[in-house]
Simulated assay, not measured.
Amino acid sequence: MQKDQLLFTRRRALLAGAVAAGAAGTAGVLAAGAGNEPARPPSPVAGPPARRPLRPSAYRLQPMTGFGPPRAAPVRTPVRSAPLLRVSGRGRTMVLTFDDGPDPRYTPAVLDTLARYDVRAMFFVCGQMADENRDLLVRMADEGHVVGNHTWSHPLLTRLRRDRIRAEMARTSDLVEEVCGERPEWFRAPYGAWNRAAFQLGAELGMEPLAWTVDTLDWTTPGTRTIVHRVENGAAPGVVVLSHDAGGDRSQSVRALRRYLPRLLDSGYYITVPRRHSV
Rank of each mutant, 00 (worst) to 15 (best):
W152Y: 15
H154N: 02
T151M: 03
L156W: 12
R162E: 15
R164T: 12
T151I: 03
M169I: 15
T151D: 03
T172S: 12
G148L: 00
R161M: 07
N149T: 06
R166F: 13
L160E: 13
H150G: 03
S173C: 09
D174M: 05
G148K: 01
E143W: 08
A170C: 06
W152L: 05
E143L: 11
N149Y: 11
S173V: 03
H145V: 02
T151E: 05
V146Y: 06
S173T: 11
E143M: 07
G144F: 01
L156V: 14
M169K: 09
S153V: 00
L156F: 11
E143F: 03
V147M: 13
R162T: 14
R162W: 09
N149E: 08
G148C: 04
R171W: 08
T158Y: 02
L157F: 08
V146N: 00
G148Y: 00
G144Q: 10
H154Y: 09
A167V: 09
R159L: 14
R164A: 15
H154C: 01
S173G: 14
R164L: 12
R164V: 08
L157S: 00
G148V: 00
S153F: 01
H150Y: 03
D163V: 15
G144A: 07
R162V: 12
V146G: 04
L157A: 02
V147C: 01
S153G: 03
T158G: 06
V146K: 01
A167W: 13
H150M: 11
T158F: 02
R166G: 14
P155M: 02
M169D: 10
R159T: 14
N149K: 06
D174G: 04
W152V: 04
R161I: 04
A170K: 06
D174V: 02
H154V: 02
T158V: 08
R161V: 08
T158C: 01
H145F: 01
H145S: 07
T151P: 01
V147H: 05
W152S: 03
H145A: 07
L157K: 00
R166K: 13
M169N: 10
W152E: 09
R171S: 13
H145W: 00
A167L: 13
R162G: 10
V146W: 04
T172K: 09
R164P: 05
T151F: 00
W152R: 02
T172N: 15
D163M: 06
R164F: 00
T172Q: 06
A167I: 08
R171N: 10
R161S: 07
R166I: 11
G148Q: 00
L157P: 06
V147E: 10
V147S: 03
M169V: 12
H145N: 07
T158M: 05
E143T: 05
N149P: 01
R164E: 15
T158N: 05
R162S: 14
T151C: 00
D174Y: 06
D174S: 05
G144D: 12
N149A: 09
E168Q: 13
D163H: 14
V147L: 10
I165A: 11
E168C: 10
S173D: 15
R162H: 12
E168A: 03
G144M: 09
R171H: 12
M169P: 11
N149W: 10
R164G: 14
E143G: 03
M169C: 09
N149G: 06
L156H: 12
G144C: 14
P155V: 08
V147T: 14
R164N: 11
I165P: 13
R159F: 02
H150F: 03
